[in-house]
Amino acid sequence: MIDYLDEPCLQKPLSQTLEQKASSLIDIRGLNKWYGQFHVLRDIDLQIHKGEKVVICGPSGSGKSTLIRCINCLEEHQQGSIVVDGTRLTNDLDNIETIRREVGMVFQQFNLFPHLTILENCTLAPIWVRKQAKKEAEKVAMEYLERVQIPDQAHKYPGQLSGGQQQRVAIARSLCMNPEVMLFDEPTSALDPEMIKEVLDVMIELAREGMTMLCVTHEMGFARTVADRVIFMDEGQIIEQAPPAEFFDNPRSERTRQFLGQVLNH
């Protein structure tokens, strides 16, 4: 496991005031979802404030990916409400598009568009969704590609890049839309061990700049370093949420202790 405890961004703003709570960026209340008979998400209540970094962990099948995929409506929910930056997610297609413009997402399998160059991957949505000028969109894209440290790959195709590079492009592609919040769905799970660090470094940098982030990940070192709050999910429920120090050192529920025992001690 990679340890980031020496990173300076450990001094994170733990002071969540009531005033911030009133204006949460993502507000999920009473969320329920079923796949047929299977109850994947049970009564989820979750508020994320602007600038907050939240890590969701839990065993596989616990519904953590499903939860963040509900936020940008890649999955439909059956009960409860999701409000993102004041827009309530309904089956109104315009609302869904408004929310997707504000919410960036990074996938486990990168999902870069293989028929487009790296630069075209990054400018596709700014040009077609934000109606930006091509030149302008390319300029912005190059800035983000520089930030994820692969500007020299801009004219290659995704198939020509390594997994770590592809995931960094995927992050840059989302950032080009200038989103309010970034969702990460197990961004390092499909990567070779030596490429995990380069992606986590980019995510830490992003966190330091104040981006609101919601990450599903098994990287506990990352959670400890970057997160303001760690959420543990099991069987579709939020079992426990706490700041990382408290979460890792004094887990309250037996189930959390068991899980942490499995992921930390090896």
Partner: peptide, 27 residues
Amino acid sequence: VPKGQKEAAAALGLKPGKVMTLVVIPQ
């Protein structure tokens, strides 16, 4: 075309028609 391609395009805010013509059909 892998499902993830449609999801990634949709997550970027592209409308279903544009997802089809810009991402799915070319592949």
